[in-house]
Design a protein around this nucleic acid. Structure first.
Lengths: 258, 258
DNA sequence: CAACTTCTGTGCGATATCGCACCCAAGCTC
DNA sequence: GAGCTTGGGTGCGATATCGCACAGAAGTTG
C-alpha cells in the first residue's frame, strides 16, 4: 500500500459547495477521522455527537430487526453527510451505520452544527437538499425491495457503491452484501455468478472488480437511475472550488478530481 | 350523512403546536380544501404549489414503477404535512400522493412557506422533526417489504391508517390495498380473510371495520411499533391549545380531541 | 327483475427465495 | 506442508408469492 495523501475536506461535495466564508468558519472545527472497513459509526440508541462528511469512505445505514435480520436503506459517500438527525432535532435514529468501504470522513462536533444551524446558513440549505435526495434513495429502496429480484438489487447496490468510489474495486464478502440487501448469502452467490459469467464483474474472496459498468446499469432495475437522477437534480455536482482557505489548521492538498 | 362541522386548523397536530403568534401570522393564509377519496394530490413531475396540513384526511405517498407497479412508502394524516420538498429546496419528488381516506386539509401557498422558512421560525423546526419521523416510516417500509409477510404488512397498514382516523372504518377495496402494499389483490384477500376469521376486522365490499385493535397490533410486525414510537418521540402529541386566534378569517370551532 | 359492474373468493401451476446441509477452494498460521 | 479459518459454490425440499382464470356475491342501472 502506498502512502496516500491526506484527504481534503473539499473531496466531500457538500463541504466543497460551501462559500469561502462559510468554509473559513467551519473548516477549523473539522476533524479528520479514519473509517476502517466494517467499523460501526453509529448504533441505535446512542447519541450522535458529530456530523460526518465522508471524503473517500462509504457508509451504509441499516435497519436491524428484533430477530437480527437487517436491511440497508441508504448508502452515503462523499456526496452527502451522516447525522442529519442533528439538524432535524432528534437524538438519533433506530438504525445502524457501518463502514462499507474504508476511507475517511471529516466531522463537525454537535455544538458547531447547532451554531451553524442557528445562522440559518448555507450548510442548512445544503443539508436540506441532501435530505431530500436521501429520502428518495430510502423510498426507492422500499420499492426495490418489493418488486425486484436479487440480481437486479445486487446491480443497484454495486452501482450505488461505485458512484462513491474513485476506483472500481469493492471489498465485501457475499455474506456482507447479503446482510445489506437483507437476503441470504447463497442468493448473492447466485446473482454474483451470473454477473461474473456475463463478464460484468470479477469476484474473489471478498474482492469485487467491476469490469463493465455500462452493462451493470442495463442489468440493474430502474431504481438506480431514479435515485441518481434525483440526486443530481438536487445536488448538481459543483466542480471542486480550489479555494485556499487561510486557516492554518487545514492543510490544503491539491487533489485530482474524484 | 350528517352535516359535519368544518374542520379546524388545530386538528392538525403541527399547526396546533405552533405558538399563538405564529398561528396568528399563518392562519389567515390557510385555505381549506376538501380531499375526496381517491383524488390525486400530487403526481411526479408536477410542481407543488402548496403545503398541505391534513385535518381529517389520510394521504398516501406512492412510488410508481415504469411497468405500472407501485408501492406506498408513507402515510400522512393529521400528525404531519404534505410537501416537505417545498422546504427542502426541490421542485417535487418522483412520487404520487393519493387520498386514502376522504377529509380535508388546510394548505399554505408556496410563497408563504418560503417567507416562513426565511424567518427560521417554529414551523421550520416542526417540519424538520416531522421529516425525521417521515424518514423513519419510509425506512421501516423498506425493511418491512423485505422481511415480512403480506399478513403482517396488512396489519401494519391498517394500524397506520387507524392512528390517523377518529373512527374505526376504512373505505378501501382489496385491489386498492394491493396497490398500496405492492402486492396482488388475491394476496390481500387471503390476508384479510385470516383477519376476519380471527374476528379482528370485518370486511365487505370496500368497507373495513377494525373490531379488535389490540389483536391487530400483536399480529402486526414490529415495524408498526418502531414507527409509532419514533414518531411520538419526535412529535410528542401536544393537547390542542384552545387558542382563540383573533383572526376573523378563521372560524374557531371548538372540537373534541381527535 | 334482468343485465351489468364491481368486489371478493378460490384453484393451480410457475417461480423466487428461503433454510439447511455439505463440500470445495483459497489464504493464513504454525 | 498440515491444519485451520474464511469465503464461495451446490443441492434439495419447503414456503410465499405470483400470474392467470374463473366463479360467486353484492350492489347498480335500466
Amino acid at each position: 500500500m502506498s502512502t496516500k495523501p491526506k484527504p481534503h475536506p473539499q473531496q466531500n461535495h457538500l463541504l466543497a459547495a460551501l462559500a469561502p466564508d462559510v468554509q473559513a468558519r467551519l473548516f477549523p472545527h473539522l476533524e479528520l477521522v479514519p473509517l476502517p472497513l466494517r467499523s460501526l459509526m453509529y448504533e441505535s440508541g446512542r447519541t450522535m455527537r458529530h456530523v460526518y462528511f465522508p471524503t473517500d469512505a462509504i457508509v451504509s445505514l441499516q435497519y436491524i430487526m428484533e430477530n437480527g435480520a437487517s436491511t440497508a436503506i441508504l448508502v452515503v459517500g462523499n456526496e452527502g453527510l451522516l447525522g442529519i438527525s442533528l439538524f432535524m432535532g432528534g437524538q438519533g435514529t433506530p438504525s445502524r451505520s457501518i463502514v462499507q468501504s474504508a476511507g475517511h470522513a471529516y466531522r463537525l462536533p454537535r455544538p458547531m452544527v447547532k451554531e451553524e444551524f442557528n445562522r440559518h446558513g448555507q450548510l442548512l440549505l445544503l443539508m436540506l437538499r441532501y435530505t431530500q435526495a436521501l429520502i428518495t434513495q430510502v423510498a426507492q429502496t422500499a420499492v426495490c425491495n418489493r418488486h425486484h429480484s436479487i440480481d437486479q438489487q445486487l446491480c443497484r447496490w454495486l452501482l450505488l457503491s461505485m458512484d462513491r468510489l474513485s476506483h472500481n474495486q469493492l471489498t465485501m464478502t457475499q455474506e456482507f452484501i447479503g446482510n445489506m440487501l437483507g437476503v441470504r448469502r447463497e442468493g448473492v452467490t447466485q446473482a454474483a455468478l451470473k454477473l461474473q459469467q456475463l463478464g460484468v464483474i470479477s469476484y474473489s474472496r471478498g474482492l469485487i472488480k467491476v469490469l463493465d459498468r455500462d452493462k451493470l446499469e442495463t442489468l440493474s432495475c430502474e431504481c438506480y437511475g431514479v435515485v441518481k437522477k434525483e440526486t443530481e437534480l438536487l445536488l448538481p455536482y459543483l466542480p471542486q472550488r480550489q479555494v485556499i482557505t487561510n486557516v492554518a489548521a487545514i492543510p490544503v492538498v491539491k487533489l485530482p478530481t474524484v
